[in-house]
């Protein structure tokens, strides 16, 4: 009950537009021209228009995401906090075992692991659900004309809401082992913003590929599993330095997931700003966003035919 109320409070408040009168002829006269012209100019313009309409439908995306979460846990006692609980138990269990295994101090390792695991779980779900974002919304896509980017945005918003629930285990770990925050914490909003934009791009890119090639969602799952072991999530690069593994360090720093994780993780753990990670993250983000936009512009009008 309390949870439901909290969610309602998160809903955008009633807008005071329209002076309370339901007008039968609300729509403004609009002309939509759907042409088969397929030049890059028209494609890019159509994609930009799609984004614009998606932005306008922000309240709908928000409501859809809330309903998604509510539905997933309808009738369950703890609701989305089941996820929080399981994350917490996992961090606790793995944390103590691996701290021994890696000869790490628990007080340093546990905060690192908590932040890493929560962020990775989020990334993993966004890529997985992103790859099926259009095929899952088949009913809506075929029922009415709506901007396609909306379905990618829904995946991102939904998962940021789940992420918000998972902050709790991190807070508990931080309460026990408080990090020494300094000014790099100020870079967190920028890092978070980059995450949001990247997640949207990933969902869009994987979504259109996944709509066309049905093998993509399982492939994405496998790649993410391999990436989990190759990316510093359970272990940190510092653990490798004293072993003189120069080459693998370069591989780590070239890892696209490493930069993204590090720009959020380092300031949260009270470490200095990692400029190399930021360069890595920004470069890969630019590449990803460009690729996603081009792929979306190229395939946008074919999506209803594919799903």
């Amino acid at each position: 009950m309390g949870y439901r109320q909290a969610m309602n409070m998160l809903m955008p408040g009633p807008e005071k537009a329209g002076a309370g009168l339901f007008r039968p002829d609300t729509p403004l006269p609009q002309i939509v021209v759907i042409s088969s012209a397929r030049g890059w100019r028209t494609r890019l313009a159509a994609a930009a228009q799609d984004f614009h309409e998606t932005l306008r439908l922000w309240p709908l995306i928000w409501a859809l995401s809330l309903f998604d979460i509510r539905l997933r846990y309808r009738g369950s006692l703890l609701g989305p906090f089941w996820l929080t609980l399981s994350t917490g138990v996992m961090i606790g269990a793995i944390g103590f075992v691996y701290a021994r295994l890696f000869h790490q101090d628990v007080g340093a390792y546990l905060p690192f692991l908590a932040v890493s695991l929560v962020l990775w779980n989020f990334l993993n779900t966004v890529t997985g659900e992103g790859a099926t974002c259009f095929t899952q919304s088949e009913g809506m896509v075929r029922a009415m004309r709506m901007p396609h980017a909306l379905h990618a945005a829904r995946v991102v918003v939904r998962n940021f809401l789940v992420l918000a629930h998972n902050i709790l285990p991190i807070l508990i770990v931080f309460a026990v082992f408080p990090p020494h925050w300094s000014w790099p914490v100020l870079s967190l909003p920028a890092a978070l913003l980059l995450w949001m934009a990247d997640c949207f791009a990933v969902a869009l890119l994987l979504g259109v590929i996944g709509a066309r090639f049905r093998d993509v969602p399982p492939i994405v799952g496998s790649i993410m599993q391999i990436a989990f072991y190759l990316t510093p999530i359970m272990w940190s690069p510092e653990m490798l330095t004293h072993r003189g593994l120069g080459l693998s360090l370069i591989l780590i720093e070239m890892n696209p997931f490493y930069g993204m994780l590090e720009i959020l993780r380092a300031p949260l753990l009270g470490q200095a700003l990692n400029s190399l990670a930021w360069i890595n993250a920004l470069a890969y983000s630019a590449l990803l966003m460009g690729l996603a936009f081009l792929a979306f512009a190229r395939t946008r009008q074919r999506i209803p035919y594919w799903i």
Binding site: P27, P29, Q30, I31, V32, V33, I34, S35, S36, A37, V141, R142, A143, M144, R145, Q301, P304, Y305
Partner: peptide, 16 residues
């Protein structure tokens, strides 16, 4: 309805 965008020709919709 604007759901399937045609491969040839065009559709002009004026109104909701």
């Amino acid at each position: 309805a604007g759901i399937y965008e045609p491969v040839g020709g065009r559709i002009v919709i004026e109104g909701l």
